[in-house]
Write a protein that binds this DNA or RNA. Structure first.
Lengths: 214, 214
DNA sequence: CGATTAATGTACGAACTAGTACGTTCACGG
DNA sequence: CCGTGAACGTACTAGTTCGTACATTAATCG
């Protein structure tokens, strides 16, 4: 039994402990918000103790920043895999919008973290050296699609990639982020599976009709 | 000096004290969130004491619910004043979208309260007997515009008033609610006065092009 | 004008919460 | 196989925060 180094039976594992804390913290922060989250609660749901949170991360705020960094990095990684360059501009945009739609729906915790961070005026996000100013891969894709569409004389000229990204994001984010008050007031669940396809297609058409308007 | 009843020189004034607390609480909750808001802080900025918060509202949670009720009521009152029935369907919708756009921009605190309430899964909003299920006047207006537009053969049939309301809201809400992370990541301030008219017009065109698509 | 009640102010407590001092155990190199 | 430092656990503290007991003052009505 020389070196169990990278094996699973290790009892002390820096990486494992860190990852465990981070995963639990992500759920707690997304669930309760930054102020509402409890360090003791995170520790309790971890297989380790509160001492380790301070040992590895330094404090509640730094742990929260680490959670944000990991969440954004995961999103970027997933976006980098989207491949729409081979499609014609219209289909490419429809595809990209649908993928964003799916991605948001599959990651409600991320949306909640973004909402929470906005309530705090992005003061933690701005502190992160990793994230501040790190460009979004989706934006590059939109830029290239718009360029191709304009060259082909299909798309209007008075909108840039960020504008398009904003329309897509607002639609997808609103559907998840404001679901609860919307449901409470209008009685409609925007996440109802029966209406999913309607909304998914609607976003694509909304964009295309706007961009290709006479 | 018989009865100074409804005069301003009164020292003890139920209405005045209540309204004062509510106004200060609105700012504190919108600023810090429900969990982040401090009852002592609200009391300190009031012209009265913490004792009065408990005397008039009962507790932190009930005060927060009262804040929500007042904020929503103010919105409804303002929406009820919008008059677009005399315009043709296209102009009416453009007008309504622009007014919603303006209204959101003018009430950032309300947007923040809604975001905060959604983080809490609308658990407080649902508790309010006044608000739960109270319909939005804007929705009635949209319903009538769509009806007229369809009768005139202008608008598509596969969208209802709530869908349209959702597109308008998501655009206007996102611009304010997600301003900070958007700014931190993309470096663009969605509230920049120089881009205001662009966005305002964009929303109207987005809706019309979609609704009038061939 | 005296008494009753509504409205207000002060001081305090019990529970919670982020963070830490201090002690312990395990892995690994020599 | 032993010493050293990294990884981990326990118990505690200082400060905060919601809520309340108790005292007090102003309005109102008979």
């Amino acid at each position: 039994m020389a070196a169990p180094s990278s094996e699973a039976e290790r009892q002390r594992d820096k990486e494992r402990t860190r990852a465990d804390i981070l995963a639990v913290a992500t759920r707690e922060f997304a669930d309760k918000g930054y102020t509402g989250a409890r360090v003791d609660e995170i520790a309790a749901r971890t297989s380790t103790t509160k001492r380790m949170i301070y040992y590895y991360f330094g404090g509640k705020e730094q742990l929260y920043i680490a959670v944000l960094e990991q969440a954004y990095s995961a999103l970027r990684a997933s976006e980098q895999r989207l491949d729409v360059e081979h499609l014609d501009p219209e289909d490419a945009l429809r595809r990209l919008a649908a993928l964003t739609f799916d991605h948001h729906e599959a990651n409600p915790d991320f949306i909640r973290l973004v909402s929470i961070e906005n309530i705090h005026r992005a003061e933690h996000l701005s502190q992160s050296e990793i994230l501040a100013g790190l460009a979004d891969p989706a934006l590059g894709a939109i830029t290239r699609i718009l360029e191709r569409g304009r060259k082909a004389g299909l798309f209007r000229e008075d909108v840039d990639a960020l504008d398009v990204h904003m329309v897509i994001s607002s639609f997808c984010v609103f559907r998840l982020a404001n679901r609860h008050t919307f449901q409470a007031i209008f009685g409609r669940d925007m996440l109802d599976p029966g209406r999913r396809e309607h909304y998914r297609a609607m976003l694509g058409t909304l964009l295309i009709e706007y961009l290709t308007a006479r």
